Simulated scan of single mutants.
Amino acid sequence: MNNIILLIPYYNNSKGLMKSLQSIDQDEELDILIVDDGSINKFEENIATQNFKAKGKIFFEYLHENKGIETALNTGLKISIEKGYKYIARLDCGDICLGKRFAIQKRFLEDNPEIKILGSNVLAVDNNDKFLYSIDLPLNDRDIKNKMYFNSMLIHPAIMFSTEILKTVGLYSLNYKSAEDYAFFFAISKSYKMANISEYLTQIEINENGISLQKRKQQVACRIKIIKENFYFGFYPIYGLIRNYILLILPYRFILFLKKIKK
């Protein structure tokens, strides 16, 4: 049995799922857990298996109704714990792995046992795979935790973490719609060290018609709530609140424009 499991929540995106599975290097050693969140447009298990060429198995879990990504993720975490995996990684349908992502992340975590969650720099493309911008993140624990008050300094589909932290942190909260990852990372930051790798190990798809962007205002509002719950009087929390209140009123197309010209 491999000691890494890749958790992929699925909802009505079979094309994106196959794209993600195809991107995993054939030399990687990991298993995959796909959690179907009550989809209408199902994928075929045999086709998914055929598109996965790495050294591992695919497990499938089906929720009877659509309950949201938080429930799908928590279902996946519980199964991963029960199966005894040492590391849990993440990927979303439509996002792809670059190079030997999982081997690189596993090696880093084992060489740096004080680090319990690890991300990487990320490339962003549109739904036609046209490059939009790169996301360059702080690399060390201190900078990540300080700048978490601005925005998430770990990209959710690019992370790998030690399963042992769930004993302390628990599962994803259901109280922060569209910002469950941000709350999860803040909870981890209170007890464990974090890091990013400077390599671009994941490519994420930015779909302007996607659910995550449709719920952007809800996401920013929840981010503000999380910042307030973790607030102290200092530069990073104060600036982070101001920044996110501004983001709450700005149209996303303008923000995307700024990201493009910056990169």
Rank of each mutant, 00 (worst) to 15 (best):
D95F: 11
L123N: 14
L154Q: 14
F257V: 00
S14Y: 15
T71M: 02
N146S: 08
N128S: 13
D95R: 02
L139A: 02
A103I: 05
L139M: 07
I242S: 12
Y62L: 05
K145W: 01
S162P: 03
P9A: 02
L171K: 02
L174A: 07
T75Q: 11
I246V: 08
G16C: 11
G170H: 10
K100G: 03
E110G: 04
E205P: 00
A103Q: 12
K167F: 01
S152V: 05
N2H: 06
E44K: 08
L17D: 07
S23T: 04
L73W: 04
K228P: 00
I104F: 15
A195Y: 02
I135P: 01
D36K: 04
D95Q: 03
F102G: 02
Q22M: 09
K15L: 09
A195S: 15
A124T: 11
G119I: 00
K83M: 15
L166H: 10
L73E: 01
A89H: 11
A179I: 01
A48N: 06
R107C: 08
I144M: 06
L73F: 03
E44R: 03
R107L: 12
E208W: 00
E199D: 15
I159K: 01
K100H: 07
L21K: 08
F235E: 07
E28L: 00
L213E: 10
N41F: 14
A72M: 03
F233H: 02
I255T: 05
L21M: 08
I79V: 09
K167S: 14
Y11R: 13
R223A: 13
I4C: 08
C222D: 12
G38V: 12
L241P: 01
